[in-house]
Design a protein around this nucleic acid. Structure first.
Lengths: 372, 372
DNA sequence: TTGAAAGCGCTAACAC
DNA sequence: GTGTTAGCGCTTTCAA
């Protein structure tokens, strides 16, 4: 039924290889043959069978993308960027959503390998993922996205730096009593954010007591648990949430409870998902470099694919800097407001002298220097 | 290098076809041969080449999904549901994001066909899409999603009904001066919502003057233009936005301008994207049946694929009912509030007698009866 | 400049 | 039960 290179050849009165040459411009054809081939193709509405071509060429021009989900704004953006870049580079995206199931993820990767994808972009779903271990079996290049894996290619955000940016911002605004909404780290990213945040606060002589940390699964519910923190004395004047969804949960609770943002309380998120800009006032947040992550991951993988067995790219771990988006949800500490020191003691202060100037606070504070 | 069915056969001391039979359980093997095949497979870490199998079987077990984007909540959900269902049914999803470009869309569909996908799920991007016309060239079954196409399989929401639900809700709450934020219909869906809304209002003797309609590209910006409507006299007491994003834009402007929702103004959206629930108060909206749309589309397409040339499923257009989610953003019209009739005349009333009871208002109002 | 022939890795008659 | 063989649609030497 369907036209093949053979049927085209027959109709055009030439050999299949000639048609192939025509299609791939792999040999010069005389004008006459070219024309007759062209006509035959049109007449039969011939379309090359890419599956057959792939089999022959041992290259499918397809890339597997495995990701925990695409409905959360962060992963959705990443997946979208990747598909775009891949399409531009001539690769078809095979999408696999792991739904945070390590088993499913594993079987998806196996499937993709069976399908002879040229490479895989993997946002693995949890520490429990056994993909990395299975990797020795896998002959296909893999780039890990938003997760670091020892001795593997990866591209991700500098979460530690992101945490520090948030910490510095709040400390600089004068906040001394700060609450933390900590996502339970399914992946080390979140832990790094918290660590960076705390390390930076220490530069200001601040430490966050355990009571000021609400921990839980990193979703909206966790944000709602801000009520626990609000009952503490002194009440926190600022909140750092380990992602924007959590921040929005907290936001909602705060507004319902009659708090005004940022007058009564400042709040900083992480990710910079699209909604964050739409809140009133818009959310101050640490923006992940979505586009860069996706673009870089594709670039790296495509290089890897094209390198084949020859010279593999050297850089193994790309770490991209996030940026602090200062918007309306944070403000300087109100004089005499809640959370002010009680009888001269700042309850969270552990070191005597917070740095006076921003400059000095920065000096030596970082494992890596701030960009700005 | 890579193990093939041949190398496995050689190692196991059997014929390739025997290995194939083992893999596909297409013939019973003696325990001994089965075991030796098994061992050979393990020893060589053999994985079947699905590309080759597809070529032979003329079936790729893959489905193309073409969609304008996946970062907007609506399309993201749809794409996610589809991938899930397809994976469950044993199909790999080939994702193509058209980015609202008709040309790109067309070339993506062509690519998918060349890749021998077994079927295509298509959310086409605009009226300008020429896919439907090109369809005669395409031998692959297609199901159109969220768009109706004459004589083609499709599944979408009953947008007209959705509009009516919104209209009835606001009218029943007593609102008489109502503003409309109308997305510019890139696709007939939006027009149907507006039409349904207005048809239902007419049942209540209401008509919306042109001045009370703000039109524009269906995005956040359009919502901001609510300021135009607020300057009208009488001021609208309720707003219907043709989707939630637009509603959120309006929301933002309203809050910034000091309006209280729903005390000062009621607002109804369309879609029920995830954010809508998180607003304070949460947004009343017409919920699209995301999961049902995605699930049904996959089901239909898979049936089509499996039917092959034999009996094609009869149902061509599946229309799924949306549901009204009444939440906090709408409230009964305040007595004596803004928008009340001026010297006894309701400016928007065109017919003398609005129906007294809900019952009568419903009777004959619908092309299809309400579900509830 | 064009054609013949082999083969990518797999499955499916069909024979034994 | 198992092996032989042909062929899915394509590309690619190599020869003419």
């Amino acid at each position: 039924m369907k036209a093949t290179i053979r049927s085209v050849a027959k109709l055009a009165g030439v050999a299949p290889s000639t048609v192939s040459h025509y299609l791939n411009q792999t040999a010069p054809l005389s004008a006459a043959t070219a024309k007759s081939v062209e006509e035959a193709i049109a007449a039969l509405n011939y379309r090359v069978n890419l599956g057959a071509r792939s089999l022959r060429l041992r290259k499918t021009n397809s890339i597997g993308v495995v990701i925990p989900n695409i409905t959360s704004p962060f992963f959705g953006e990443i997946a979208a960027v990747m598909e775009n870049r891949l399409w531009e580079r001539g690769f078809q995206t095979l999408l696999c959503i792991s739904e945070r199931s390590p088993e499913r993820e594993l079987s998806q990767v196996a499937h993709l390998v069976s399908r002879q994808v040229d490479g895989i972009l993997l946002v693995y779903c949890s520490q429990k993922s056994r993909v990395a271990e299975t990797l020795s079996d896998i002959s296909v290049p893999i780039v890990f996205v938003d997760r670091r894996v020892p001795d593997q290619y990866s591209v991700c955000t500098d979460n530690f730096l992101g945490g520090r940016l948030a910490g510095r911002h709040l400390a600089t605004l004068g906040h001394r009593v700060i609450g933390l909404l900590c996502g339970e780290p399914s992946v080390e990213n979140v832990a790094e954010r918290i660590q960076g945040f705390q390390v930076e606060l220490q530069r200001f002589g601040l430490e966050i007591p355990e009571a000021y940390k609400a921990k839980g699964r990193q979703d909206l519910q966790l944000g709602l648990r801000i009520t626990d923190l609000l009952q503490l004395d002194p009440r926190p004047t600022a909140i750092f949430a380990t992602n924007d969804i959590v921040a929005i949960g907290a936001w909602r609770k705060l507004v319902e409870s009659g708090f005004r943002i940022p007058r009564d309380i400042s709040i900083v998120g992480f990710d910079d998902i699209a909604i964050s800009r739409f809140l009133v006032p818009p959310l101050t947040t640490v923006a992940q470099p979505y586009r860069e992550i996706g673009a870089k991951a594709v670039e790296l993988l495509v290089d890897l694919v094209q390198a084949g067995e020859t010279g593999k790219p050297a850089q193994e771990n790309v770490i991209l800097a996030p940026t602090l988006k200062i918007r309306g949800s944070t403000a300087p500490l109100k004089k005499g407001g809640a959370g002010k020191a009680i009888d001269g003691r700042l309850p969270q202060r552990t070191k005597p002298v917070p740095p006076k100037s921003k400059r000095s606070s920065r000096k030596g504070a970082s494992r890596r220097p701030f960009k700005s």
